[in-house]
Design a protein around this nucleic acid. Structure first.
Length: 558
RNA sequence: AGGGGUAUAGCCAAACGGUAAGGCAACGGCCUCUGACGCCGUCAUCUCUUGGUUCGAAUCCAGGUACCCCUGCCA
């Protein structure tokens, strides 16, 4: 069963705050929002935010809005809007009626900007970007006032309205708030409110020639939507005074509050949009949905389940300290979900042919194999056994190492759901490469792992009948990087790329039942891992399977 | 002497003045027709550090230290 974590999840500071706000009567209903900018695809870091925002709303009986923070048309595209909606839905969250766009508020925002001008709290700046920077001062030195800071209200109003009309080219003027050029918080040194951009917008078309900055849009949009708890990542903390300044100085009737949490960092991958984009552009990965990427589309294509991603987000918790979550935590979440839900099946990835010399060559035996060892309700399937079978080359060693208890020359092993077989000789080609194994089976050993004379066979291996095996391609994915933190400053993160992050095996042998494999079903290839048919590259004539994650392997570790 | 944050095990994380939850990882053992799953056990005399207050401190106070964020007409 795809059980959501039911154990009382750990407390976190956001729940504490909301709990108190509800108890004190400050709010009777909480409203949160997930506010992506449609300038790229969502990744697992966004999933954390989505789970927090939608999760909190769900837990406390409130609601969560999906809002596109679309204030910069230079970077935003419709394609991203659609992908983001799709990813949020896939994760299992529903915004219902509450789909919003910051851009739907552009007129109100404009009026508020006019209001600030009238209050002498905003002015049109003629300085160019470089000059503004020079006036801003540094971290340790105060900035200096712009010569345009004292423009009259009338002139500001006129200029701002002409900016809106598209009278001036990009970059020639901006609207700034009049706050404090000497503030130790640089965000308060007369921040830019509006810039001129003669760029069509993915949601509102070419209605605007000026666009509000994030700071001038976010808090106000929160207020308009009636957001009670505006939850964002830590880097916005220094913007909080600005967030409040606008709410204080504008005629808004409600007060959303901003709270910050630490963004997710995952080991052995990169999360920044820029780096993800670069990997795609350089062709290092096949696209945004490359199964090795931490993008939601990539994870989805690889076969991760939404419930496993949600469980992951629940398990890692929410805090305010910078953290690096070990990717093994994510892997464990998929395993535990798939262990319960995935039907078992047999597949041989690196086939060696094994001929059972004492089995009739015209006979194919049918038998039933359980689809799940602990859940009989998942039923059985028919498997076939014949004189020739495929076994995995990893399960045979000519010179076995200590502790190896699979097939060896002269040794015996149990075929999963089959007989005990013994290998008697190896056939090699001119180069000394093994081409075929020959041996015999014990007809009385169908049930259990004991031989006729009562000995217990140590090893059980998977296998596939050569008579009706399905040939397939299987892609074995590994971590994209060799270093736990490729993102660390200094060196180029690309130098840590794992050259073996994908291994493509083209001659894999799957049991016959997989000829009818379902693209939505995650299978456990017994003893190997969890796999899912690739929804893009799979062909009826040549199925392609992605390895989602391996099984834990106590033997391999030694 | 710029401002704002954060420090609890290998990685996350709870604890709200009453004697350090939980998960992941790791390590032993049991079980097993998947070296899987499951089960049992081990894993902080201690909360960045130094002092102080208190019968009692991870929690309160004072001083250090380390790391993160902020000088886009990005979000």
């Amino acid at each position: 069963m795809n059980t959501e974590l039911t154990a009382a999840a750990s407390n976190n500071f956001l729940k504490t705050i909301i709990d108190e706000d509800l108890k004190s009567g400050k709010h009777s209903c909480i409203v949160t929002r997930f506010p992506p900018e449609p300038n790229g695809y969502l990744h697992i870091g966004h999933a954390k935010s989505i789970c927090i925002n939608f999760g909190l709303a769900r837990e406390f009986g409130g609601r969560c809005h999906l809002r596109f923070d679309d204030t910069n048309p230079a970077k935003e595209e419709r394609e991203y809007i659609e992908s983001i909606k799709e990813s949020v839905s896939w994760l299992g969250f529903d915004w219902g009626e509450h789909l919003y766009y910051a851009s739907d508020n552009f007129e109100q925002l404009y009026q508020w900007a006019v209001f600030l001008i009238e209050q002498e709290k905003a002015y049109v700046e003629d300085l160019n970007a470089e000059q503004i920077r020079a006036h801003r001062g540094t971290l340790t030195e105060p900035g200096t006032n712009s010569p345009f800071r004292t423009r009259s209200v009338a002139e500001n109003l006129d200029l701002f309205s002409r900016m809106r009309d598209g009278e001036f080219p990009d970059g020639t003027r901006v609207l700034r708030a009049k706050i404090d050029m000497a503030s130790p918080n640089i965000n308060l040194r007369d921040p830019v409110l509006y810039r001129i951009l003669h760029t069509p917008h993915p949601h509102v078309g070419d209605a605007w020639k000026i666009y509000p900055m994030y700071d001038f849009a976010h808090g106000q949009t929160d207020a308009i939507e009636g957001i009670t708890h505006s939850i964002c990542t830590l880097e916005f903390e220094s913007h909080k005074p600005l967030y409040e300044w606008f709410l204080d100085n504008l005629p808004v009737s409600v007060r959303p509050r901003q709270y910050e949490f630490a963004r997710l960092n995952l080991t052995y991958t990169v999360m920044s949009k820029r780096k993800l984009q670069e990997l795609v552009k350089l062709g290092i990965v096949s696209g945004w949905d490359d199964p090795r990427l931490p993008t939601l589309e990539g994870l989805k294509r690889r076969g991760f389940t939404a419930v496993s991603v949600r469980n992951f987000c629940e398990q890692i918790g929410v805090g305010r300290s910078d953290s690096w979550i070990d990717v093994s935590t994510l892997e464990e979440c998929v395993r535990s979900d798939l262990n319960e839900s995935a039907p078992r099946v047999m597949a041989v990835l690196r086939p060696i042919k094994m001929v059972i010399d004492n089995f009739p060559d015209d006979l194919i035996e049918e038998s039933q194999a359980a689809n799940h060892p602990q859940n009989p309700e998942m039923g059985c399937r028919t498997i076939h056994f014949g004189r020739e079978i495929w076994i995995d080359s990893d399960d045979f060693m000519e010179m076995p190492s200590k502790g190896f208890h699979r097939l060896t020359v002269g040794g015996e092993v149990k075929l999963r759901f089959g007989y005990i077989i013994k290998c008697l000789r190896i056939i090699k080609d001119g180069q000394g490469k093994i081409v075929e194994l020959h041996g015999e089976y014990d007809p009385a050993s169908r049930e259990g792992i004991h031989t006729a004379d009562g000995r217990k066979v140590k090893g059980v291996i998977h296998w596939v009948s050569a008579s009706n095996a399905v040939t397939a391609e299987v892609r074995l994915f590994d971590r994209l990087f060799n270093d736990p933190n490729p993102d660390r400053g200094g060196a180029d993160y690309k130098q840590f790329l794992n050259p073996n992050s994908v291994e493509t095996l083209t001659n894999c042998k799957l049991e016959a039942s997989l000829a009818a494999a379902d693209v939505e079903t995650r299978y456990q290839f017994e003893r190997l891992g969890y796999f899912r048919m690739d929804p893009k590259d799979s062909l009826t004539s040549k199925p392609v399977f992605n390895r989602i994650v391996t099984l834990r392997d106590a033997w391999n570790k030694k």
